[in-house]
Write a protein that binds this DNA or RNA. Structure first.
Lengths: 242, 242
DNA sequence: ATGGATGATTGACCCAGATCAAGGTTGCCC
DNA sequence: GGGCAACCTTGATCTGGGTCAATCATCCAT
């Protein structure tokens, strides 16, 4: 989800490295925010916010990956989104988060006090416009994921996940054929609505089929991209409307 | 999803019955839109827009229910949302829809030409603000649904669905104990990521358990709300943060 | 009323993926 | 390096929900 931005999108003009905020920032606007800005880091595995917690801060991910998830009473957990650099935690107009936010890797957040930030969103049309666009993009991504969760087979889920990782890695700068799974098997399972055993088995199958090769448990290369895309169950265009 | 608004929320001040647009409308702003406004109706079952279609209009539902869904090549279909009165079809900043939009019941749409509408969204902060809020609400609802699709059992899915219908019906005005399923068994199946047989079986089970009673295939009353809520698998508060 | 279409229910059976269980890897700390 | 803890893989078995198929109900149109 939300594989929309990453650090590269940061604006170099000011210390807030987010295009969402900086796109058309001027010194005056920034000054307001600067006053309440702070950075925090979380270690991998730590919970950043619990579902229902009141948010004192509005933050955005600077470095690392966080997850949004919900756990049912009996422990079943479903991840509902990944937060990558430049994604926000918190939403204007709401004091609480509806999901648990957890650091998947070590995470650095850049945070602002909620009130002044919300005021800024109110006052700056381009900012609220930007938040709206981000929300709509996330909404599309979430719906796309609903199709995966509701209708895809285990193999298709795994293929879609791998393909997503690969697509995200393939940026103009480096076409490194080596990719890294940012999640543990358990996290992948919770992301795809599967168990770790099924995740493990399906990865082994794709390995046996010669589609991917693992150098260690996290790093892999794609041997047959066409076969991978074919296994996703999506249309040829990969689910993206041209 | 998006059980957020209904006709009652309409603003009586102008013919565009949507609070999103009308909340702080003045005659001047409205005049712009009025010029390009038109109404269309679709019969139950008709497709309103196909995935990928270029949207000439930006529309909102006035009457009836429409669905957003995606169908995989081999026919597996997943519904990703329901559009109720006052929900929008189309999104500012995008020319196409990512999902098929289908009339579930007979549907009346109120539509505007896309260009002028988008300009209006750009120009009126309160409107873009409103669209942002709607997008964020839908996003929460979509994520909630992801938990259902990824982790809930058939019984829990059915219970959650029924409970949602009941919650939506329970408005201040009338606490009628009789409710109506707005969807066919097949549509319910596609909404919940199940087959029609499983939907039918689970409904029969809940009937047998004395939780609900059907008068015909669409109308029912709840005999044991507590048991129903218990069967959803959600926390006691019904998934809504207080 | 009759025939036919559409939609819903119910039963019998099957299989993908969950569950249970036993090792295997990797990495870290003493 | 040895021991321990996470994490991952693989096998055996079970089961929830899918698949296939038959029957029933409801609603029209003739």
């Amino acid at each position: 989800m939300t594989f929309v931005f990453n650090e590269r999108d940061g604006c170099g003009k000011c210390p807030i490295r987010h295009r969402a905020i900086c796109a058309r920032c001027d010194d005056e606007e920034m000054e307001l925010l600067e006053k309440t800005k702070s950075y925090v880091t979380f270690e991998a595995g730590q919970t950043i916010v619990w579902r229902g917690d009141t948010l004192k801060y509005f933050s955005s991910v600077v470095l690392g990956i966080a997850s949004l998830s919900r756990t049912l009473e009996d422990g079943r957990t479903q991840m509902v989104g990944l937060l990558l650099p430049s994604d926000f935690i918190g939403r204007p107009g709401r004091e609480t988060v509806d999901f648990d936010v957890t650091a998947v890797t070590d995470v650095t957040l850049c945070r602002f006090e909620r009130k002044p930030f919300e005021r800024l969103v109110e006052d700056l049309p381009h900012l609220s416009h930007r938040v709206m666009e981000m929300a709509l993009d996330e909404l599309s991504a979430a719906r796309e994921w609903m199709v995966l969760l509701g209708r895809k087979t285990a193999r298709e889920k795994i293929a879609t996940f791998i393909e997503m990782i690969v697509r995200r890695d393939t940026v103009p700068t480096h076409d490194a054929p080596r990719h890294v799974l940012p999640l543990t098997r358990e996290e992948i399972a919770n992301f795809l609505g599967l168990t770790i055993e099924t995740v493990s088995r399906q990865l082994s199958l794709m390995k046996k089929d010669g589609i991917i090769t693992f150098s260690d448990r996290r790093s892999f290369v794609i041997n047959d991209l066409a076969a991978l895309q074919d296994a996703t169950g999506d249309d040829a265009d990969g689910g993206v409307i041209i």
